[in-house]
Design a protein around this nucleic acid. Structure first.
Length: 614
RNA sequence: GGGCCCGUAGCUCAGCCAGGAUAGAGCGUCGGCCUUCGGAGCCGGAGGCCGCGGGUUCGAAUCCCGCCGGGCCCGCCA
């Protein structure tokens, strides 16, 4: 394998080896990208770190150290900077080998972690009583992107979606249908109808009526017990889930398994969990104080009330433990539906189907918004105490709120606050399907202006919308709150998903016109733009691993944008097809070919749909 | 009362984890590139006490402490 990362690792090793000759225990030696590209491709601050103990200037140390570092001069050139940084540059020969490798492999090649793991990732998990809004979309996009990343790195990944079909939100909806007379059918998309009309109004009515509150309590109890009302509700819920899935599929997501909360409840999983917790001494029965007669987890959180019923966190904990195989799996599994990517989506079941379909995971990831972090960390601590070898990983992200502007459009009136939080209950949210449609219309308009003869405009516009939505939701750092503004969301220029798709289309067009005549190179002569593009291309694996080890796709998305930018600069400055020098032309075709392979690979990881033309 | 996150250009954000070389993008703005392998592009200009104060250090946007501003969480609820 020839890549930036492999060269970086080799250098890092040999720098550390060279430092050992000084007999100094090293810590925090940086070997990596320099702050500015003009300094080189790889840099190290080793001389600064050593200068303290050696009592010499960084430059003096670097001058000496540089002689001790071993590397292949074929691939790397070294430079000593007057500041004391040692900078390395990849050579033309390195790039020649790198290009040929891609041409031979017809792609970047295998990028595999040293240790393949069984990973479970849970995302989406939206209450099945309404449509997905842009806040849920952040969860779906991040979850699906991590799934794609793990998969790309060679892990065995299972994607779960948890359906809370026994909660209050569903109970509200059922009250609306059963006692408030809302019709069971509608011409509207069903999840929109249920969320926008039935749930919002039912909730309002329930809050205002003690009698309805009592009814809701009965519904809730029946859902838990799997009685008559549960059987009435089940088909309604399934219909909503199917619509929610469509919205998620539309932006490129897929799942392996639906976990129904009712199956955990009716299957008695909490009782099993309770026994495990008791046996390991993680929960204690409290005999006095404010938690008298309750069972408390890790001296922090009540899990069983004084009346003997379990709190919601108990269900969360049970589910988490099940993922890691800490309680036995007694479910049956059956096919719920077929997905657009051709795969089958399974569902848990209590009566009939396959058994033991899913093996416990080594690592279980869950995507949550920041508000749930304290609770999920508690679960993480509890699981750690149950089994040290298993890893429960929480990926928390900032909330998606609405800008004042956008909120005013939804409530159709004045809004005081600069930022408005979405709320399914009060009907303040921007639905994902609506966003898709709005961006699609903008894209369609652009296509009609710029490329009116393009075939399958609708489909192309959809793919542009997917790229725009996914990129904008994965690009900000996880910690950052996103203030969603519809006017900003409709912009398709600059640092966006479509920008990246566009460079792929440009590369595809050139290759198509060259009749795809790509062949291995014997020599190489590179301009600044070409070298810069190749450098970016060689860094692909470096950023994939970085995204995995830091559990963040921000830097990866950023990198892909820079890669696309490097291609655009090359494209502006150098001609490919009308280049007179045949060797140069051959080299540039190879370069474009390699770019296309890598950007496509990257787009697959980020879930940006491929477009040969737009 | 206790805790978490954010604060970098007019706006939206990278960079902070592993301190180091002139703090970078996008949008907007002003100007340039249609003799176009497709302009959803490229090039340039203007625009920064990196929230404030202190500390550590030869060196701080980055680490530590305090404050200010914004968002959020903390029930035997779900």
């Amino acid at each position: 394998m020839i890549s930036y990362l492999t060269e970086l690792n080799k250098l890092s090793e040999s720098i550390n080896k060279a430092i050992k000759e000084y007999g100094i225990a090293t810590s925090a030696i940086y070997v990596g990208e320099p702050t500015e590209t003009s300094f080189g491709d790889i840099t190290t601050n080793a001389a600064f770190v050593l200068s303290k103990t050696l009592r010499k200037s960084p430059y003096e140390v670097a001058k000496d150290l540089i002689e001790k570092i071993e590397f292949s001069e074929e691939d790397i050139a070294v430079e000593l900077h007057s500041s004391g940084f040692i900078n390395f540059r990849l050579t033309d020969l390195f790039y020649l080998k790198f290009l040929n490798q891609i041409i031979k492999n017809q792609g970047y090649g295998k990028i595999t972690v040293p240790e393949k793991k069984k990973i479970i990732i849970e995302h989406t998990s939206v209450n099945p009583n309404k449509a997905l809004h842009v806040g849920h979309a952040r969860n779906v996009v991040l979850g699906d992107t991590f799934y794609r990343l793990f998969k790309r790195l060679g892990h065995q990944v299972t994607v779960l979606n948890y359906i809370d079909d026994t909660g209050v939100q569903v109970a509200d909806l059922i009250v609306g249908f059963k006692y408030l007379g809302y019709p069971l059918e509608s011409d509207e998309k069903y999840d929109h109808y249920c969320g926008d009309v039935v749930y919002v109004n039912a909730n309002k009515a329930i809050e205002e009526s003690e009698a309805l509150k009592k009814k809701r309590g009965e519904v809730l109890k029946d859902l838990e017990q799997g009685g008559e009302i549960y059987r009435y509700a089940r088909p309604i819920i399934e219909k909503i889930v199917k619509e929610q899935l469509k919205s998620a599929w539309n932006i490129g997501a897929r799942y392996d398994l639906l976990n129904w909360e009712s199956h955990f409840v009716h299957g008695g999983y909490w009782k099993k969990m309770f026994e495990v917790l008791k046996e390991k001494g993680l929960i204690k029965f409290v005999t006095e104080g404010k938690h008298k007669n309750c069972w408390v987890l890790l001296d922090k959180k009540v899990l069983v009330r004084s009346d003997g019923t379990a709190v919601y966190t108990a269900k969360d904990l049970t589910y988490a433990a099940w993922k890691l195989g800490l309680i036995p799996d007694e479910f049956y599994y059956s096919v719920f539906t077929k997905q657009p990517d051709g795969s089958e989506l399974y569902s848990t079941s209590l009566d009939g189907g396959l058994k033991g379909l899913y093996k416990p995971a080594d690592e279980a990831y869950i995507l949550i918004d920041q508000r749930q972090l304290p609770l999920q960390n508690l679960i993480k601590d509890a699981l750690k105490a149950l089994s040290a070898s298993k890893d429960y990983k929480v990926i928390a992200y900032g909330l998606v709120a609405l800008s004042k502007n956008t909120a005013e459009k939804i409530v159709k009136g004045k809004v005081e606050k600069e930022i408005v939080h979405m709320s399914g209950r009060s009907g303040i949210y921007y639905n994902l399907d609506d966003l898709m449609e709005a961006i699609k219309q903008v894209a369609l308009k652009l296509i009609n202006e710029r490329n009116p003869t393009l075939p399958e405009k609708e489909e192309v516009a959809s793919k542009i919308a997917v790229a725009a939505i996914r990129y904008s939701l994965m690009r900000p750092d996880l910690d950052k709150q996103i203030v969603f503004d519809i006017n900003d969301a409709l912009k398709l220029e600059g640092d966006t998903g479509p920008y990246i798709q566009y460079t792929y289309a440009r590369a595809s067009k050139i290759l198509e016109k060259s009749n795809n005549e790509v062949s291995l190179l014997n020599q190489i002569k590179l301009s600044e733009e070409e070298k810069r593009l190749l450098l970016q291309m060689s860094k692909y694996d470096y950023y994939l691993f970085k995204a995995y080890s830091s559990t963040s796709v921000t830097a990866l998305a950023n990198y892909v944008h820079e890669l696309a930018f490097a291609f655009n600069v090359f494209y502006e400055k150098k001609r490919v097809l009308d280049e007179k020098d045949s060797e140069l032309k051959k080299m540039r075709i190879a370069l474009v070919y390699a770019y296309k392979q890598i950007i496509l690979d990257a787009m697959n990881v980020l879930g940006l749909p491929e477009l040969k033309e737009l």
